[in-house]
Design a protein around this nucleic acid. Structure first.
Lengths: 133, 133
DNA sequence: CCTTAAATGATAACCGTTATCATTATTTCA
DNA sequence: TGAAATAATGATAACGGTTATCATTTAAGG
C-alpha cells in the first residue's frame, strides 16, 4: 500500500498554500526551490495519486493545454475566461450545490445511468476583460 | 477566406452519419477508405476548422485521451461511464436546456463574468454496466 | 486560361505526460 | 534495532495525440 514520502507531503502543502490553479510544471518550479533535486516525474506521480485519493482536484481545460490542479476541496466550479484564459473559482453554498447536483442527477436518469460526479468548466468573459477595450 | 474542399465535405459527411463520438483517428480510418491518400493532418485540420465555425462539437474527455467529435448539434450534454468509458448523449428539450443554462448563467454572475457557454461531462455508471456483475 | 492564395499530404517536431530502471527510503517484524 | 521486502524516487527515454513546416495541388475570380 501507499507509503509516506517527504515529497508527497511537500507537494500537497505547496498546492494547498496557493490560491490559483497551477500546472504540474508551475508547482515543480516552486517545489524545486524548497527541495532541490526533486524530479519532475515525482511531481506528476504524486499529483496523480493525490487526485486519485481525493485529496486534490484536477481541472482539465482545453486539449493540449496542461492540466491544472486545485488544493481547495470546497464545492465550487470553474470558469475559464475566453480572453485571458485565467481560471476563476465560483464557490457554491450548500443550497446552490444541492440544486446543481440534483439537476444533473435528474438529467442522468434520462438515460438510466447512475450519477456520480461532473466536470463543469464554464466559458465566459471575466470581470477584468469585460472592462478592457 | 475559406475555400471549398472535397476533403472537408467528406469529413463533415462522415461525422454526421455517425451516431457515436469518434476520435480523429477513428474518422481518418473510415474516411481513408472512401478517399484513399487523404492525410491524417487534413483530418485534424478540418475537424479544427469545422469546430471553430460551429459546424461540429468537440468533447474533451480525460487528459491524455484523444478528443472526440460529435456531428449532432442538438442541445445535449455527455455522460462518460466510469466503468466502460463509453460516451452517452443526454438530449435536452427546450425547457431543460433553458433551465440548465439559466442556472449556469446565474452562477457566472457571482463573479461578475459574462456567461457564454459550458463544457459539462457527467460521470456515472451507464445502464449496461449497472446490470453487469 | 492565368494568377493568387488556400488546402493538401508527408513527415518532422512539439510537449505534456508516462514508463523504465537502477537507487534510495520507509515500513515491518523477527 | 536491524535486516528484508517493497514502495518511492530521480533521471531520462519513450509515448501519443496534435500541430508546424513546406513543397505541391487545387479552388476561385477576373
Amino acid at each position: 500500500m501507499e507509503r509516506y514520502s517527504k515529497q508527497r507531503e511537500l507537494i500537497l502543502d505547496v498546492l494547498k498554500s496557493r490560491k490559483d490553479h497551477p500546472t504540474a510544471d508551475m508547482l515543480y518550479k516552486e517545489i524545486a526551490q524548497k527541495m532541490p533535486g526533486i524530479g519532475i516525474a515525482t511531481v506528476y506521480r504524486n499529483l496523480a495519486s493525490l487526485y486519485k485519493s481525493g485529496k486534490i482536484e484536477k481541472i482539465e481545460t482545453m486539449q493540449g493545454d496542461p492540466d491544472r490542479f486545485d488544493g481547495d476541496l470546497r464545492p465550487h466550479i470553474h470558469l475559464q475566461c475566453s480572453k485571458c484564459n485565467e481560471i476563476y473559482d465560483i464557490f457554491l453554498d450548500e443550497e446552490e450545490n444541492k440544486q446543481l447536483n440534483d439537476k444533473l442527477a435528474e438529467l442522468t436518469k434520462l438515460i438510466n445511468a447512475d450519477f456520480t460526479s461532473s466536470k463543469i468548466v464554464l466559458k465566459g468573459i471575466c470581470k477584468n476583460c469585460k472592462n478592457k477595450n
